[in-house]
Design a binder for these strands. Structure first.
Lengths: 211, 211
DNA sequence: AATGGCCTGTGAATAAATTGACATATAATT
DNA sequence: AATTATATGTCAATTTATTCACAGGCCATT
């Protein structure tokens, strides 16, 4: 399936958007789409879309375009959405709770098994059916429950410490919302969400617009 | 100050990281840094850092490097962090509350004046001192309180509707957390936060690692 | 005040990403 | 069945981004 040359991160970061629009099209009952039409939806050029998709194989057909359902499924596979992942959250504040509550992640195959916090006042509480547990038990829990993704929603001063725990406990990937960089071994998959940076970019353009 | 040629988005997206590390250095009492040292911290190459900064003016000095405080302040200005912004949030769920609660944004000059929701059960509640109000009053509120940033933390089906309200009411920029694209006039500043996409990228690399 | 080491700013070289162009295969039409 | 329209996959051209390399200015030391 597809070519073996390593695909650039630039391309990979566009895949979720393709997948999202294809899912939308599926829900609308549309079964066929051309790179030109996808271009209008996504804002990428048609040529770029064809190039991107072709990194993973020839999903289209000349004179026809792409079959929406097939392409959505193939992109899903490429993105690993055809499998389930277990995760836990450290940091049971609003952000952690927001993630625990969001059904969209679970629907996509990402299940939050438990949350962990250091604050005794929240330990024992439940978000939906997700219990907030004491940090004491986290390593055990991760090992026993085959947890692959560790989510960090703590303040920035705790982020590295939590990351170290995740590394020790053997998660495969870390999804970090804390506004600081964390150090992890090379083979750890790390994805940062930088809300601060996003807001600052907005601010940059706001300022630029009023000058 | 600096050159006038439009700076590429690629460069701009790196600025917040420079700013963050410079703030850290300031807090540690370090007053001087070279592009080489910044390179180690940020992971960008020294050459890239010098090129990036030079887009906005020659902040450094040969044989010395950069003055941390000066550079931090200048980057802050470039990013518009030297001014205050008023914002409101539509969508008083966990995510909206997380943002309302997060002091880091307020410290950076972004004040949330109010939240709005459609659910009568949350209207009237307060997050810190931020009241959740009825959507009915939003346009008025935005106009009367000089609100420049509209934040969207609703489910995706409401996002466009909220965006339209923001546009009509005259905010300058929209910070959108809903997992869908919204259409706004060309002169509206729009910054999207794509949690889904970020998670999918993590998933992509997780899958790639286990193959 | 002279010397040596350091480190920026910058132009050139290289690499990466995007766009353009088209041969060719399929679908749709007559 | 033949013809026309369509739209991919791909190679080439262009544009953008990154890295390299170094002249020259500044600091520190003596």
């Amino acid at each position: 399936m597809g070519k073996d040359n390593k695909v650039s991160l630039t391309v990979i970061r566009r895949l979720p958007k393709y997948h999202r629009y294809l899912s939308d099209l599926m829900n609308k009952g549309i079964s066929r789409i051309s790179s030109q039409e996808l271009s209008v939806l996504t804002g990428f050029t048609a040529s770029q879309i064809r190039q991107d998709l072709n990194n993973f194989g020839g999903f289209g057909q000349q004179g026809y375009g792409y079959n929406v359902e097939d392409l959505q499924r193939e992109l899903g596979k490429i993105l690993g959405l055809d499998q389930k992942y277990n995760s836990v959250i450290v940091g049971a504040g609003n952000l952690g709770q927001a993630i625990a509550n969001y059904r969209g992640f679970e629907d996509a195959g990402f299940k939050v098994l438990a949350m962990f916090d250091r604050n005794p006042r929240v330990i024992g509480l439940k978000i939906r059916d997700i219990e907030i547990k004491d940090m004491e038990h986290i390593e055990d829990f991760i090992k026993k429950n085959n947890v692959e993704i560790g989510i960090i929603t703590t303040p920035k001063d705790s982020a590295q410490e939590v990351a170290d725990i995740y590394v020790k406990a053997g998660v495969k990937g870390i999804w970090n919302f804390a506004p600081s960089d964390i150090n992890v071994p090379e083979d750890m998959i790390l994805e940062n969400v930088r809300l601060n940076e996003s807001l600052f970019i907005l601010s940059y353009f706001l300022k630029a617009a009023t000058k």
